[in-house]
Design a protein around this nucleic acid. Structure first.
Length: 188
DNA sequence: AGTTCGATCGCCT
DNA sequence: GGCGATCGAACTG
């Protein structure tokens, strides 16, 4: 049920596409992944790992299946999942979730959300909704309090590919993947 | 419905 | 010291 390490030990784009439809579970709250972006280790100027390993980016170079959480614009925490074999950089930014459990708790954490559709439709929104913070930096997603799981029922969908959002460098690369038709993605 | 703009701080040059 | 892998409020039309 919990995705095994081997799931993540693959090329970043494969992991990104594979994560769509999976469930992120933290405590009583859970969300179905509907939007992701791949950040590559090589030939990707937009990736935090592009400048090499630093104190912040070291997990991106570590073993796959761990969480890379960083602070965006001084106030929003964003969740990435490390891909590729140990020693190779690559991670997947989780950009939007469809709430599937613990909606009442998510609403308490996100009073600004005017509808369930807004609870977790954005990288900063979803960490807030699920209670994910930099305390989860480096967390192993194959065990422990924060996990990624196979959905309880089979989940079929088509995948759309587009350009990544909110970046200026390497903005033309087709590395954003969304579940076709989902109302919960951050932008159409 | 679409655009603009301020908030806020860790990270790297 | 400058700059973001963002969000939400305020404003316009």
């Amino acid at each position: 049920m919990i995705l095994p390490r081997a799931f993540y030990a693959r090329p970043t784009v494969e992991v990104a596409r594979g994560l769509l439809g999976k469930w992120i579970v933290h405590g009583e709250t859970a969300g179905r992944i509907v939007e992701v972006e791949a950040y590559l280790g090589q030939d990707d100027a937009a990736a935090h790992s592009a400048a090499g390993m630093t104190a912040r980016t070291r997990v991106i170079f570590g073993p796959p299946g761990h969480a890379y959480v960083y602070l965006s614009y001084g106030m929003h925490e964003c969740l990435n999942i490390v891909a590729e074999a140990e020693g190779v950089a690559g991670c997947v930014l989780i950009r939007a979730l469809e709430p599937v459990a613990g909606v009442a708790e998510m609403r308490e954490r996100r009073p600004a959300a005017k509808s369930d559709r807004e609870l977790a439709s954005g990288p900063g929104r979803l960490t807030r909704a699920l209670g994910i913070t930099r305390a989860h930096y480096g967390a192993d997603l194959t065990q422990g309090v924060l996990t990624v799981r196979e959905p309880p029922r089979p989940d079929a969908f088509a995948i759309d590919v587009s350009r990544r959002i909110g970046i200026s460098k390497a903005a033309e690369l087709p590395l954003r993947f969304t579940i076709r038709g989902s109302r919960f993605i951050s932008r159409g």
